[in-house]
Amino acid sequence: MAAANNPGAPDHIGTTTQPMFVISEAPVIEGFTPSSRSREETFQEKFKRKTKENPFVPIGCLGTAAALMYGLRAFKQGKTRQSQLLMRGRIFAQGFTVVAIIFGVFATAIKKD
């Protein structure tokens, strides 16, 4: 009767609420197959697997880092010509790395189909 007089008062005082639905198993998503791995990969395992899948990406990254380091060293020593050449090499290595990443993505997409 109090709820009828007061429209803002809850009318379920003293009752417990049950969930609307209970999920007993994982949902099935069409076109998706769950990973067969039973445990998480460590960073080293994932790095080795990814390097085997596309070895040109780490090579490009190392080339980029090396050109940058030597270019900065040459710049600090005042060797402007050598520094400019190494910075151009760094740009080339970065481009190589981006192309390797794109190629790896397309190769993986084609391989899974």
Rank of each mutant, 00 (worst) to 15 (best):
A3E: 06
P7A: 13
G8L: 02
G8Q: 05
I13C: 05
G14N: 06
T15V: 09
T15N: 03
Q18G: 02
M20L: 14
M20W: 10
M20H: 06
I23N: 10
A26I: 10
P27T: 11
V28P: 03
V28W: 03
E30Q: 05
E30Y: 01
E30N: 04
E30M: 00
F32I: 15
T33M: 10
T33E: 06
P34Q: 07
S35D: 12
S35R: 04
R37A: 15
R37L: 15
S38N: 05
R39G: 10
R39D: 07
E40M: 12
E40T: 11
E40G: 03
T42M: 11
K46Q: 08
R49Q: 13
R49H: 04
R49D: 06
R49A: 15
K50Q: 09
T51G: 04
P55Q: 09
F56T: 01
V57R: 00
P58C: 08
I59T: 13
I59N: 03
G60Q: 01
C61A: 13
L62V: 04
L62F: 10
G63Q: 04
T64M: 10
T64P: 02
A65R: 05
M69C: 09
Y70W: 08
L72M: 15
Q77M: 13
G78N: 15
K79N: 13
T80G: 02
T80W: 02
S83Y: 01
R88A: 14
I91R: 13
A93N: 03
G95L: 08
T97A: 12
T97R: 08
T97N: 09
I101K: 06
I102G: 01
F103G: 00
G104W: 06
V105R: 05
T108L: 08
A109W: 05
K111A: 14
K111C: 04
K112I: 12
